[in-house]
């Protein structure tokens, strides 16, 4: 795998970790109705993510060969297409975020202000997910590895 593929996988795993980090307190407070007492049980997602970051630094720096460039012309093209896919996803999600609440809440409906940052964060995270998936899909179209 080259650096761009590794970075895309790193982005995907980071996205999954963010989902876990956000879901864990939500499940603890609203479903289990209890918050863990010990430091480890409260902050284990962050500790695991820290270990993952350190391991990724080593993983991302390792090259297939000493002369391998960080990125080449094909990587540029793939990233450009992936950025376009991410941009399109942002546009679609923003439109959905504007239209869907109107149909659910009606013309006189009200959304609390503190919901807006969560909507923005969610759109950003999904755009990053789309970008990383687009990179990996395009690499998958490049033909099978003929040699190790």
């Amino acid at each position: 795998m080259n650096k761009t593929q590794k970075a895309a996988i790193f982005g995907l795993v980071t996205f999954l970790f963010c989902v876990v980090v956000m879901a864990y307190p939500f499940i603890s407070i609203f479903i289990l109705k209890s918050w863990p007492e010990s430091f480890l049980s409260q902050f284990w997602p962050m500790i695991v993510y820290f270990v993952f970051i350190v391991a990724s630094i080593i993983f991302l720096r390792k090259k297939q060969s000493p002369a391998e460039p960080d990125f080449d012309e094909r990587d540029d093209l793939i990233k450009k297409n992936a950025v376009l896919a991410g941009f399109v996803s942002v546009c679609i999600l923003l439109a959905a975020a504007c239209i869907i609440p109107r149909f659910i809440l009606g013309d006189e409906g009200v959304i609390p202000v503190h919901v807006l940052p969560f909507i923005n964060l969610g759109i950003f995270m999904i755009a990053m997910l789309v970008y990383n998936v687009a990179v990996l899909i395009q690499y998958g179209w490049g033909g099978k590895d003929a040699q190790n």
């Binding site: 391998e68 460039p69 080449d72």
Partner: peptide, 8 residues
């Protein structure tokens, strides 16, 4: 001066 994936 490119990656192996590009040659593939």
């Amino acid at each position: 001066g490119v990656t192996r994936q590009t040659i593939i």
